[in-house]
Nucleic acid binder design. Structure first.
Lengths: 199, 199
DNA sequence: ATGAAATATGAATCAGTGTTCATGTTGAGG
DNA sequence: CCTCAACATGAACACTGATTCATATTTCAT
């Protein structure tokens, strides 16, 4: 189970935040194994031991970030969808994509961190995606009942969608180092709605 | 640049093969950083130093596997497609999916190895996907010219497709530890062809 | 058969890194 | 202005794990 010591003063709060921000940036940039504790403490401008005031070890820090980021992302998507209720499942997906991209832009670390969690803590990795998948399954099932969505295993579809989003983000943010523009988002939504064949 | 010493005797060939097979299994199972040289040599039943007869270091071994597996997969897909030329792009995709799944089954290590390459050797990681992407771009462009495929950036589409395949394999092979059956493949092909909306 | 090249061995080395801990500093409430 | 819990420090420690290398064995062309 993940563990963080909750700070009890303003100062402690600040320090914890500095550590988390530094760690997020470094894990994202260099990966879990390649970032050293000293990298993190140096970037955060705290002493080595300070990190261990808040986290019992390196892994706990990693898991804390992963948990935190996943929570933030789910929350951001949920809130954005609530702003436009009663729209079609496709429009809901458009919203998801928008939030996802802007989240990746802001927390560039997230999906690089999650990406490698597979080899840091397999259970945490699985939980992360299963959690998103569960959310999707609910929505897809509803859409299917309304006759909107194609007959297809919702769990399978959820992973297909997550795969698209993850790899497109990989392409844009990591490889091309550029932002997905509106046209990209439109093309993606059309593909998800109607596939790659011309009608 | 990747380096392997080419063995010059039958014995050497056997030894190299043992090392590669052990390494593939272990990198796949535990990840690059978590597998130790001693794990590999032990599983391969050779002495520590033997590994260094063939590879200058751990990274070279990893890159060799990655290169090798990528090559094999591309070759397998190419050959399978050649067996059914002149079929629609969708049927070609069906073939790709089939080969991909059966390849992952046989070389379970491949995509776990590639998955984490992002943090082992970023350039090799990018090259791997870009290579697949390039192949796709050619085919998609042709299909677009024939009016088969939707108006969409081929590079973008290629990453969307790779994302689908990767994540579905993740779900099936890693999470569910089960094989994708024919129904799964059919659903995927339909989704890729026509999207998630009911026609 | 023979010896030179190729291959195999594994204990020892050595550099790097996560973690500990004894000690110092801070700051808010009494 | 004191005091105590909370927080911060960073040198030292302990351990791991990749790599080396001097030596032994096997292969195979002649």
């Amino acid at each position: 189970m993940e563990y963080v010591k909750q700070p009890k003063t303003k100062r402690g709060e600040q320090t914890l935040k500095k550590i988390c921000e530094a760690a997020e940036a470094l894990f994202a940039q260099k990966g879990y194994y390649a970032t050293e504790i000293s990298d993190i403490t140096h970037k955060a401008q705290v002493a080595t031991g300070t990190l261990y005031v808040y986290f019992p070890d390196k892994l706990s820090l990693f898991l804390h970030l992963m948990d935190n980021l996943g929570r933030k992302l789910r929350r951001a998507i949920r809130l954005a969808k609530q702003e436009s209720p009663h729209t079609s499942i496709i429009e809901q997906e458009r919203i998801s994509i928008r939030v996802w991209f802007s989240f990746v832009r802001e927390h560039f670390g997230l999906f690089r961190i999650v990406w490698q969690a597979q080899f840091v803590d397999e259970q945490a990795f699985k939980d992360y995606y299963e959690r998103f998948s569960q959310g999707y399954i609910g929505e897809i099932t509803k859409a299917k009942e309304k006759g909107e969505a194609r007959e297809m295993d919702p769990a399978l579809l959820s992973y297909a969608l997550m795969g698209i989003y993850s790899f497109v983000a990989l392409k844009c943010f990591v490889f091309d180092k550029s932002e997905p523009d509106d046209s990209t988002i439109n093309q993606l939504v059309d593909f998800i709605a109607h596939g790659m064949l011309r009608e």
